[in-house]
Design a protein around this nucleic acid. Structure first.
Length: 523
DNA sequence: TCCACTCGCACATTTGAATAGT
DNA sequence: AACTATTCAAATGTGCGAGTGG
């Protein structure tokens, strides 16, 4: 049974975190960056207004109540292992662990260079993100969140058979956080079965109001997963949080696949793309069409690829987030199966970012390798931009697969005033060269500058429940979908907490939140 | 001309309502 | 009346390829 069957009253909802202020060395007025910089977004309290300029201010997206005084570790992730400022909640105990469930499939894609299609209307990720969690208190309530942050400060282009940099990255867009629809749920619920984030959708539409995660095309991104102890998504206090990344889930965004191998692998492994498999009707028909339309040489190229690389099964295990179901891998791709350790990297621990002048020479940083023993802690200079995953060969090194050791736990927290202590895997696994994070990537520092949630006052006092602060969702009757909720409807919170310092500004909109609102009340 | 991007298409899967049977 | 199983249509998720625009 899927989670949502159990917690039907909690539809998936999306959150938006206002963009952090840009560091001094972030590209600004040069080149084309400025044109996309949305400078008004830097102004506390107005960051999102430009995104919804066509809406009456009183009806602009919601801003859920002062969700919490805490924040997720900010991006960007300039390479794995880079220290992150903390969430403002204490870390969850070190025995809280997360593993990537379908990592074999992720590895398949990662070995080639994962590409994710992004579309205006939003596209799901494939492979899907599916994780398992252990170490939670069975009766404690937790939220599971996911977000996607840029890995570096570059834009990429596909050159014949590999990716290469083609300039600086587009400015960062407002970051959105996907809240798993089961949230909040007891630890026992999260631990009893794998947790699928398959409903995450990626878009390149900067004006998106559906709550999809907005990304730039031709950029590299890293999904992150966060476990937050809280009574509900609107909790004002978090009881702790931990964040996790899995190196093999790094991907490049595209509007059309560039690497033919990725296309073939997606077709072979994604059930929705069955129609494009060699034995599919569509494939046969299209092949006929192509033969008529194209020069023979093009077909020859296609066939040679199929012959050379697509004629043996990829792997045997489940690869889909369709919980527990084995995927039908009908055919044939001969992408070499790497055997890396896919240990996740706990990115939680953390201290505020130091001044740029304190940034140490990356070369002075001790080498880090994957499969580190649990609990190992390294002293890592702050603001290190050295990638966790060093540049290496095209394939993963052979390493013993050890699930237990792939789980990483942190020792007790040290005072934030002390040198930052970061939990890192002991061994690194190399990305394919095209995916390696350049050592000289400009640093994107984070500043925990305070920002305001919408509205200067919050006349509803401490009551930040929908009944106290929200207005009923709107929606025309003709917009009601067959599935029972209003399309394009929003739930709006007209009242907001006055700014009292750094806050996470989660926002919600769209049918998901309406379902949350109408589906059974609030916890 | 190149290339990133959008859009419509056909196909496969998923979902949920309607119906039949127990 | 309640529950389960089956059927079917609509919704949704795919990659493809033509067309567009910078």
């Amino acid at each position: 049974m899927y989670h949502s069957d159990i917690f039907q009253q909690y539809g998936p909802s999306y959150g938006v975190r206002p963009p952090r202020s840009l560091p001094p060395n972030y590209p600004t007025a040069t080149g084309h960056h400025e044109a996309y910089r949305y400078p008004e977004l830097d102004v506390p309290g107005q960051r999102y207004d430009s995104l919804f300029s066509t809406l009456d201010p009183s009806q602009r997206i919601l801003g859920a109540a002062p969700l919490t005084p805490l924040s997720l570790p900010p991006g960007p992730t300039l390479g794995f292992g880079q220290p992150h400022p903390p969430c403002e909640a204490p870390r969850l105990p070190g025995n809280v662990k997360m593993t990537l469930e379908n990592k074999e499939l992720w590895k398949q894609f990662h070995a080639i260079g994962t590409e994710m299609i992004i579309t205006k209307s939003g596209r799901r990720m494939f492979p899907q993100s599916k994780v398992s969690v252990t170490g939670l208190e069975p009766d404690g309530k937790y939220l599971l969140l996911a977000d996607i942050v840029p890995v570096d400060n570059s834009r990429y282009k596909w050159q014949e058979d590999h990716w290469e940099e083609s300039g600086r990255a587009e400015p960062r867009l407002p970051e959105r956080v996907y809240i798993h629809p089961d949230s909040p749920a007891p630890g026992s619920h999260w631990m009893k079965q794998p947790i699928s984030f398959h409903k995450i959708k990626l878009t390149n539409n900067t004006l998106d109001q559906m709550g999809h995660i907005i990304l730039h095309s031709m950029h590299r991104y890293q999904p992150r997963f966060h476990i937050v102890r809280a009574q509900d998504v609107f909790s004002r206090r978090w009881g702790g949080c931990s964040s996790f990344t899995f190196p093999e889930t790094l991907f490049l965004t595209v509007t059309a696949y560039q690497n033919e191998k990725i296309t073939q692998l997606k077709i072979q492994t994604n059930p929705f793309a069955k129609g494009f498999r060699e034995d599919g009707l569509k494939k046969k028909r299209d092949r006929i069409t192509r033969v008529k339309r194209k020069a023979p040489s093009a077909d020859h190229e296609q066939d040679s690829f199929q012959a050379a690389e697509c004629k043996r099964p990829l792997y045997g295990g489940p690869c889909d987030s369709t919980l527990g179901e084995e995927l039908d891998i009908g055919g044939s791709l001969a992408i070499p199966l790497p055997s890396p350790d896919c240990a996740f990297h706990l990115i939680t621990p953390p201290t505020p970012a130091p001044p740029a002048s304190e940034v140490p020479d990356p070369s002075s940083i001790p080498p880090m390798t994957a499969n580190q023993d649990q609990g190992t802690t390294l002293e890592v200079p702050q603001q290190n931009t050295e990638p966790f995953l060093e540049t290496g060969g095209q394939s993963y090194p052979e390493q013993p697969v050890d699930r237990a050791s792939s789980i990483f736990s942190c020792p007790p927290e040290s005072p934030v005033s002390q040198l930052q202590s970061v939990c890192v895997p002991r061994s690194l696994h190399p990305f394919p060269p095209s995916f390696a994070v350049p050592l000289d990537s400009p640093q994107l520092t984070d500043s925990q500058s305070d920002f305001r949630l919408y509205g200067p006052d919050h006349p509803c006092g401490a009551e930040f429940t929908p009944s106290a602060c929200a207005v009923a969702p709107t929606g025309r009757s003709e917009d009601v979908s067959a599935r029972g909720y209003h399309m394009n409807s929003e739930i709006r919170f007209p009242h907001f907490l006055a700014n009292t310092g750094p806050k996470l500004g989660l926002q919600f909109s769209g049918p998901q939140l309406q379902r949350l609102y109408t589906g059974g009340g609030w916890m």
